[in-house]
Simulated scan of single mutants.
Amino acid sequence: MNNAEAIIEKLKLQSHPEGGYFKEVYRSDDVIKAEALPEAFKTERNYSTSIYFLLTSENFSAFHKINQEEIWHFYDGSPLLLYMISPSGELSEIKIGRDLDKNEKPQFVVPRNYWFAAKVIQPDHFSFVGCTVAPGFDFEDFTLAERNNLTTEFPQHDKIIAEFTR
């Protein structure tokens, strides 16, 4: 049976700025020129990228957003709970896991420009997932939420924002 420490070690995962651990496992060789991309992208992007991402129950993935859709794929461990705030301020949540009878989704797409955060559902456990992004991810596309700014923008969600920002 897998455990978090073994996965981190065997796959050489590193700490991620949002929380948890990650490793890029795919970056397409081909690129899309900046002028062919929407205005949000200032430089060229690879067609697609994917990472491994591991989160433990002692940590959380802090609210952040990117310029692209992000597809989450569940692999192992506890299901996780993903929170999203749309650009218009609607809060939603989704369980990512493999128990279809509990309405968990083994794959889920986070829309672009949504603020999102995640936590492991089971105490003393981990969630191991993959994330795929197209056009490919670049840290230029990543914005980590600042608690005061996000609370000012969405005061109706102050409690969840406080729980999932640092």
Rank of each mutant, 00 (worst) to 15 (best):
T56L: 03
G136S: 02
A34G: 10
I71M: 08
L54P: 02
F60E: 09
F164H: 12
Y114W: 15
K65P: 04
P106L: 09
L81Q: 12
P106T: 09
N149H: 09
F22T: 02
F108G: 09
F41G: 01
G20A: 09
T165A: 04
N67F: 09
D101I: 00
E140G: 10
F53M: 03
E140Y: 13
L91F: 07
N148E: 15
P123R: 12
L144T: 09
Y114F: 15
N59L: 11
W115S: 08
D101K: 00
S57P: 12
G130P: 06
L150D: 08
E90M: 04
F53D: 10
G136H: 01
A118K: 08
F60G: 03
E153D: 14
V25W: 04
R112L: 12
K10R: 13
D99N: 14
K95M: 06
T143I: 14
T49Q: 06
I94N: 08
N149A: 13
F142D: 07
V110E: 01
P111T: 04
Y75G: 01
A145D: 01
V110L: 07
S88P: 00
F154T: 01
K42P: 04
V109E: 00
V133E: 07
Y75P: 05
S57E: 10
H73E: 03
T49I: 08
G77K: 01
Y47R: 15
D158R: 00
N113R: 13
P38K: 01
F116T: 05
I96L: 14
S28D: 07
N46T: 15
F108C: 08
A40W: 11
L37S: 04
L37N: 05
E58W: 09
D30Y: 11
I161G: 01
A40N: 14
K119G: 06
P17C: 06
V133M: 13
G97N: 00
S78G: 02
C131M: 08
N148I: 08
V129E: 06
R27W: 08
K33T: 13
E69M: 11
Q68G: 05
L91A: 02
F154G: 00
V110D: 08
K95Q: 12
Y26C: 00
H73C: 07
L82G: 05
N113C: 10
K119A: 03
N67S: 11
E24R: 00
A145C: 11
P135A: 12
D29A: 11
P135G: 13
T132E: 14
I85D: 01
I71C: 13
D101G: 08
F126S: 10
A6E: 15
G19C: 02
L100F: 13
E163M: 12
G97P: 02
E5M: 07
A118R: 09
F22A: 01
I94P: 05
D124N: 15
S28R: 00
A34Y: 05
E44H: 14
D158P: 03
N149E: 14
Y114K: 03
Y114E: 03
H73Q: 12
E24A: 03
A40L: 12
E146G: 06
E9V: 05
T56W: 09
K119W: 01
S48D: 01
R45C: 05
I66P: 03
Y75I: 11
P111E: 02
I7T: 03
N59H: 12
Y47I: 15
E146C: 13
T143P: 04
T43G: 10
E140L: 13
N3E: 11
E153H: 00
K102I: 04
A34T: 05
E69S: 14
G89C: 09
T132Q: 10
G77Q: 04
I160N: 02
I96T: 09
